[in-house]
């Protein structure tokens, strides 16, 4: 039995300890916003926050996440400036990569509240979007950063 805290809720799951956190979140806790794209830390679709840091959940054996604070896309408030910026810029196309994009973007803004394009490129390069929404991602991150600088909800 492994106990996990996901989006401030405690879950106890009976899984093989080396199961990647991604699959426990998706299949046992039934939070399917976090996506599978590659399984080898190449695409970022599975990005969640562990103790506030962006991590690839496909790479983390569930046993290593025990006792840590895990946040998934479902745990991000609807009025988070990143989410509202994403909507304002109509960023998603197929949308499959965007849970991961948003989780990475929030982690970026936590680290660098006013990122430059180069900061965005560096931080977000681990998140692939096959639909090519990168230009809008960049724009929406700047938009959210501006809102947050003005004291918008974080």
């Amino acid at each position: 039995m492994i106990s996990l805290v996901v989006n401030s809720q405690k879950h106890t799951v009976d899984v093989t300890p080396d199961t990647p956190l991604l699959w426990v979140i998706r299949e046992r806790i039934n939070l399917t916003g976090t996506k599978y794209g590659c399984g080898i830390a190449q695409c970022g679709a599975c990005t969640v926050h562990i103790d506030g840091k962006a991590e690839r959940s496909c790479q983390i054996p569930v046993k290593d996440a025990e006792g840590k604070k895990i946040t998934t896309i479902e745990g991000i408030p609807e009025n988070h400036p990143i989410k509202t910026a994403w909507i304002a810029d109509d960023v998603p196309q197929c949308g499959y990569c965007h849970s991961g994009q948003i989780m990475s973007a929030i982690a970026l803004l936590n680290e660098k509240p006013q990122p430059t394009d180069a900061d965005i490129d560096n931080f977000m390069s681990g998140n692939i979007c096959r639909c090519g929404t990168y230009q809008r991602i960049r724009h929406a991150i700047h938009r959210a950063a501006a809102v947050m600088a003005e004291g918008g909800t974080k």
Partner: peptide
Amino acid sequence: TKRLDTPEKTNGKAVFGIDINIPRMLV
């Protein structure tokens, strides 16, 4: 015109084939 599907594609609620879960389902 704003896309109608953007909100659900920014909060993890959009359902893709891979997200389907039906009772007694195996993988």
